[in-house]
Design a protein around this nucleic acid. Structure first.
Length: 572
DNA sequence: GAAACAGGCGCG
DNA sequence: AAAGCGCGCCTGTTTC
């Protein structure tokens, strides 16, 4: 055979079997490995030429390779691939990959598994806990099945791009956990102490206790626990504050001496419980926050996270994200990603024209009867989320007049969802079908003898689903763009030279290399040796241009980035 | 006493 | 301000 293009890995107990194939999948050479010989062998194959690793689940193979100091450039993650192909509309409905089976039932979250092999050691028969097939023959069979499904699909090139991007995301997720977010504990503690005060004798921060006392006095309820919504609601009403909920926005509309301390209390209590000293203790080790990411964890294709609230780090604490000495952070985010991909997928030249340059919302003000930037923003969000009332709902018709193609795309997606149908992203990720409960509600409303309440319930459920599918196509395509961006960036970063200064907390692979440290939907933070920061910033830009080209070809559409080189991740 | 649910709020 | 989408996690409360 010629140079191998693929290496398929499977595991049976302590034995690891590898099959090398060329790009037709035909010629096969088999190799037998174990835990000790695997990393060295992978490193050798990886450096011998371009190869794609095919395995059941990146989260079960890659972390231990990274711990051994080995990276891989490309893979085909069969679990992630199956999750996409299982529902993909562009694959014929009778294709075997679209039927239920063991590859579909596996958990997406290795951290949720007992004795997680992703985080600790192999369990002796990887997959035993999850039902995910682990042997080489199963991997080969599933790989051929997925390959065949892609070939039979309406648009193999797009689906192939999606699977490659999704798999690259799987690699990136493991790498992000391995490298960690550089976290300055002293800075974090400064933020906590400044906001909450020192810990008092009761073990609670002083400032929080003072505010609680002030609330009790103002409401005349000395026993009140402000953390209990039912108690708080009763107490507020007794004090003559006629609220329906204890939510921040409703409270802010009332005048009363209890309101100000209560709002402040809620804000600080949130900081304490979500990201206080206990969080620091549990989640930051050796100057790194290491969250577990769950690629494809959201139906739209966005990532989810498990543990540590990685995707909810409050802006208040971003100053604790701090580069190591001799290193810098390159912080980059895409401006208004979702409306831009909407312009691309609908080929709406007017919206693309409005998106030219940095601020899409300013462009909308110029192109429409909408007068101000904030109005342009709520109008566009309303169009993508399905707003029907309020300022947003009122402004959406202006967008329909000026950007008919883009608006038709989201309106069509909503209508299909309301009818119980499925919609797909630009690259072919398809929304899941409505569940049995939803279909039951619709069925009941169309039966003879349906009550007005039945019909009302069905209509509401239909509209709910319409808003979901409306947003699915936009949010999902934005996630694809971001994955393509990050996948390309991985390659560029790995081609940069090694560092002169070391960042020891980042693990065996990344302590001497520029590496992505954090990824959140449309934003990336790269931790880089200071001398490479300018190169990294250029790479981030080049990758954005490449993502635009990969998804939308020559369609003239900007994806401007906000890129900063800094020591800390907060906005200067 | 654990599990499930609700209210609330952080992020995009 | 929210509204209109997608998440995760904390506390308190209810249910088993």
């Amino acid at each position: 055979m010629g140079d191998p293009a693929f290496a398929v890995l499977g595991r049976d107990g302590r034995v690891i079997d590898a099959a090398l194939t060329d790009d037709t999948g035909g010629a096969v050479e088999r190799v037998r490995l174990d835990d000790d010989t695997l990393p060295g062998w992978v490193r050798d194959r990886e450096s011998a030429g371009r190869i794609r690793w095919v395995w059941n689940d990146t989260a079960r193979w890659y972390p231990r390779l990274l711990r051994a100091g080995v990276t891989v450039a490309r893979c085909w993650d069969l679990r992630l691939g199956h999750a996409i192909l299982r529902w993909a509309q562009s694959v014929p409905a009778d294709d075997p990959v679209r039927t239920a089976g063991p590859w579909a039932s596996a958990s997406a979250d290795p951290a949720a598994e007992p004795d997680s092999p992703a985080l600790f050691e192999w369990d002796g028969g990887a997959g035993a806990h999850t039902g995910l097939p682990s042997g080489l023959d199963a991997a080969l069979a599933e790989w051929r099945s997925q390959e065949a499904a892609v070939r039979r699909s309406e648009d193999p090139a797009r689906l192939r791009l999606l699977l490659a991007a999704e798999s690259a995301g799987g690699l990136l997720a493991s790498e992000l956990t391995a490298a960690g977010v550089p976290w300055d504990v002293a800075e974090h503690e400064r933020v906590l102490t400044t906001a909450l005060g020192e810990i008092g004798p009761g073990g609670r921060p002083r400032r929080l206790e003072e505010l609680a006392a002030g609330i009790r006095t103002a409401l005349g309820d000395p026993a009140l626990n402000p953390d209990s919504p039912p108690q708080l609601l009763r107490s507020l009403r007794r004090a003559g504050i006629t609220v329906q909920t204890t939510g921040r926005w409703e409270l802010a509309q009332h005048e009363h001496p209890a309101i100000a301390p209560l709002l402040e209390y809620k804000k600080l209590a949130r900081l304490l419980t979500a990201n206080g000293w206990a969080w620091l203790d549990e989640w930051v080790r050796d100057g790194r926050f290491r969250p577990v990411y769950v690629p494809g964890g959201v139906v739209t294709g966005r990532w989810a996270s498990s543990g540590g609230g990685a995707l909810q780090i409050p802006r208040q604490l971003r100053q604790a994200v701090r580069a190591d000495p001799g290193w810098k952070l390159v912080v980059a985010d895409v401006a208004q990603l979702e409306p831009r991909v909407l312009a691309g997928m609908s080929s709406d030249a007017s919206l693309a024209q409005a998106a030219r340059g940095r601020d899409l919302y300013a462009g909308i003000v110029e192109a429409t009867a909408i007068a101000t930037r904030p109005e342009a923003k709520v109008a566009m969000l309303g169009a993508m989320y399905g707003a029907t009332t309020g300022d947003s709902g009122r402004l959406v018709p202006h967008l329909r007049r000026s950007f008919p193609r883009a608006m038709r795309l989201v309106d069509d997606a909503a209508r299909i969802g309301e009818d119980g149908g499925a919609v797909s992203t630009w690259l072919g990720r398809t929304s899941p079908p409505p569940d049995e409960r939803w279909r039951g509600v619709q069925r009941r409303a169309s039966e003879a003898g349906a009550t007005a309440a039945d019909i009302d319930r069905a209509r509401r459920a239909a509209r709910d689903r319409g808003r979901f599918t409306r947003n699915f196509v936009v949010q999902g395509t934005a996630a694809e763009w971001a994955l393509a961006w990050l996948a390309d960036l991985r390659g560029r970063l790995s081609a940069l030279p090694a560092a002169s200064a070391s960042a020891p907390g980042s693990g065996p692979v990344f302590s001497t290399r520029a590496h992505a440290a954090f990824f959140l939907h449309d934003e990336v933070i790269v931790h880089t040796p200071a001398e490479l920061a300018d190169d990294v910033a250029a790479a981030v830009q080049a990758s954005a241009a490449e993502a635009a080209r990969l998804l939308f070809g020559d369609f003239p559409l900007d994806f401007p980035l906000d890129v900063r080189i800094a020591d800390a991740a907060d906005k200067a």
